[in-house]
């Protein structure tokens, strides 16, 4: 794993140009994808992603190369997304509160035990449906889902990033999946036509 290559990490901390280039290739898509899932709009995602890379550039010297790189990077990204919410507080007060308020929501029960027609939808359609359904998740759940599923971070690391214990993160992840299932099942009728 390049992320654990001590030589690469040492050169990265020293801000070696090649190492920074490799770092950029390793992380750009992941960071942009994470940010874009949370802020939804492309131009906002670009602004926040740029902030993340500027911050990384300024603080890479403080990175402890004995630790894993991904959690460090995503902690910065998560903080930048939060800064973004705060700066738009007057516009997005509801989103801001939902970042930490999801756990108070009642656990949603799936409409049906099986996904049924979802599997019959064409891939492209399904991706669009999935994206929309993920986009409908409350921000805190979406954040946990993205960090866990797409970025493969361990639950305990996610917990440290968002200030929750591991159990709470696991629970939030399960809730996110349950809510995603409900969101999808609501959409299948209109998207897939229920051709089970």
């Amino acid at each position: 794993m390049e992320e654990r290559d001590q030589d690469f990490l040492s050169r990265l901390v020293a801000r070696d140009r090649d190492a920074l280039g490799r770092f950029y290739e390793l992380f750009f898509d992941r960071i942009y994808g994470y940010v874009r899932r949370l802020v939804v709009e492309d131009h906002l995602a670009e602004d926040v992603t740029q902030d993340v890379f500027v911050h990384i550039h300024r603080s890479i010297q403080t990175f402890d190369s004995a630790r894993d790189l991904s959690p460090w990077v995503f902690t910065i990204a998560a903080n930048k997304v939060r800064d973004h919410w705060r700066s738009r507080r007057h516009h997005d007060a509801l989103r801001e509160t939902s970042l930490d308020g999801d756990d108070a929501r009642p656990l949603v029960e799936p409409v049906d035990g099986a996904l049924g027609p979802l599997f019959d939808i064409e891939n492209r359609e399904l991706r669009a449906t999935l994206d929309a359904a993920i986009g409908e998740l409350p921000v805190g759940m979406r954040e946990t889902l993205v960090l866990r599923w797409f970025e493969e971070l361990p639950f305990d690391e996610i917990g440290r990033m968002i200030g929750r214990n591991e159990t709470a993160v696991r629970k939030r992840y399960s809730r996110a999946l349950a809510e995603l299932r409900v969101n999808l099942e609501k959409r299948v009728g209109t998207v897939g036509g229920g051709n089970a």
């Binding site: 399904l126 599923w149 349950a178």
Partner: peptide, 16 residues
């Protein structure tokens, strides 16, 4: 919900 996770495999990361 492993079924949901199998479905999520088809979701792609948004690209810039």
């Amino acid at each position: 919900d492993p079924e949901m996770e199998r479905l999520l495999v088809r979701a792609l990361r948004p690209t810039a």
